[in-house]
Amino acid sequence: MNCIQKISLYLADTSNLPKIYAAVICLIAAIGICTVPFLTYHGDQLYPKPAEQNMSPLTPYDRGGVPFIEPAHIAAQYPENSPALGYVTAYLTPASWFLANTTCYLGTTIVGHPGGILDEILYYTRGLDTIVEASIFFVAFAIASFLYRRAKQ
């Protein structure tokens, strides 16, 4: 049995595929470590997160704006494609408006309410990403429940 036969025999077993694939990724990660000096961070990013922030109740997610009146300033990729840019970021639900005015710590839980910068990105400017992600979840559930129900028949 020569070398090529051994290799093809090894590759013919599908249970070896994950191993080969993982080894290839290890190799690329090693190449990545060698090329780290060429990877420089681009300073001018989209949707920047300011390093120094004022001490408002919304602190980590405060991007300015007044609900319904004044939109927040958002550095989107194509602002001309999103006419209502910034309104979702500025919006606070009545409950979170109340909390923002009475406590100092709404910023810790704001991602759980409608409105805010993350909802702006997830629902509006990059909404299609979230649609695809939801579809992946949908299809995954369809496959799992198909397999599950078939076993019950």
């Binding site: 990013q45 989209l46 949707y47 920047p48 997160k49 997610y61 910068i117 993350l118 990105i121 997830l122 990059r126 990403d129 979230t130 695809v132 992600e133 939801a134 992946i136 979840f137 299809v139 995954a140 559930f141 496959i143 799992a144």
Partner: peptide, 23 residues
């Protein structure tokens, strides 16, 4: 990436992982 965009991109990444482990 360390921007608001990074926080938003984590969510699809996480959900894809959950969906796949389920299947």
């Amino acid at each position: 990436i360390a921007t608001d965009l990074a926080e938003a991109l984590i969510l699809p990444g996480l959900v894809v992982g959950i969906a796949e482990i389920m299947v």
